[in-house]
């Protein structure tokens, strides 16, 4: 298998390969104790590496090509998914998917950014970078959910809204602005989960909600570390520093009170065990929904309004 290995994962992988090698000989040689020792060492190393990731390393995990995407979570967490297409104006944007699904007893509308796994599917999904049609499709589905009192779950994972010619022509900025405006007053619960990359307005465009959750190894900020580096440092080489400066990880954002809750990932990241990740996320989502469905629609909207009104730090 053509596995992607990140630089800091290499020592772990080397040890794991060594264990596999040793197992082959364990029938003939008495090395069981050695193997157990080595396994403990791997576990320790893993804990050490993954509990001390730099911000840039987390950005890399958030972008890991084997990381579960929206459709994977839908597949692993829900049943009877009915995907709905198109914005009824112009197109069906493949970089945002959505539809009705059942999360056990909860009927929900799930909407999320969708990346591809290989070149072909990435081209099809436009690398998870929506055009205005994507945001307008998302809004159409959210209004549909509101009409039928269905809670909404959105999943954020995009390197940004697409900076293209047609995107500008068809009003990328208007589409995102409209979503922020409309989402702030939808009369059904909205749970937002950042599952990978939360790049600026392209992510926020489906990211206004009552509860903002974030998987442990994700990033969410006003700009990507690379673009920030190119603008402020006038070079692409300062992405690590930019990632540090932007304070863009889940722990950072929880401290800044921009997200409400961190959803833990399996040791090594969501991509190492998607079913376990999905099962845990499902449990968390049900917990959140069970609280939100108790609230009256007006209360829900008031709380959401107050939540965003509080965001920001300044001196008077």
């Amino acid at each position: 298998m053509n596995k992607t290995v990140l630089e800091f994962e290499k020592p772990i992988l080397d040890l794991e390969n060594k264990i596999v090698e040793m197992r082959k000989y364990s029938e003939v040689l008495d090395i069981d104790d050695e193997i157990v020792k080595l396994e403990r060492k791997v576990q320790k190393l893993k804990e050490n590496v993954y509990n001390n990731l730099t911000r840039w390393q987390k950005v890399q995990i958030a972008r890991h090509p084997e990381r579960p995407y929206t459709l994977d979570y839908i597949e692993l967490m829900t049943k009877d998914f009915v995907e709905l297409h198109g914005d009824r104006l112009c197109k069906d944007d493949k970089s945002i998917v959505g539809g009705f699904a059942k999360l056990d007893e909860y009927k929900v509308m799930i909407i999320g950014h969708q990346k591809g796994r290989d070149t072909k599917s990435n081209v099809y999904r436009n690398f998870g970078m929506p055009n205005p049609e994507g945001y307008r499709k998302a809004l159409r589905l959210m209004k549909l959910a509101e009409k039928f009192d269905t809670p909404i779950i959105t999943m954020l994972d995009t390197p940004g809204a697409y900076p293209g010619l047609e995107a500008e022509q068809r009003g990328q900025a208007e589409a995102i602005a409209r979503n922020l405006f409309e989402m702030s007053k939808l009369k059904v619960p909205i749970v937002v989960v950042i599952i990978g990359e939360g790049a600026s307005g392209g992510a926020l465009g489906i990211g206004v909600g009552d509860r903002i959750l974030m998987l442990e190894n994700c990033w969410y900020s006003v700009i990507s570390p690379e673009s920030c580096s190119s603008i402020l440092w006038k070079s692409w080489d300062f992405k690590e520093q930019a990632a540090e400066a932007l304070r863009l990880t889940a722990i950072d954002l929880l401290r800044q009170k921009i997200i409400d809750r961190i959803v833990h990932e399996p040791l090594g990241g969501a991509h190492t065990n998607p079913p376990a990740m999905a099962a845990h996320l499902k449990m968390v989502l049900k917990e959140e929904l069970s609280q939100l469905v108790k609230l009256k629609p007006d209360k829900l909207v008031d709380n959401r309004y107050e939540k965003f009104a509080r965001m920001g730090v300044f001196n008077e």
Binding site: L180, S184, L204, Y220, S221, F308, V313
Partner: peptide, 12 residues
């Protein structure tokens, strides 16, 4: 950082 981003949601 994200504080700036959230001003978009706040004003909207």
């Amino acid at each position: 950082g994200a504080f700036s981003l959230m001003q978009m949601a706040k004003t909207s």
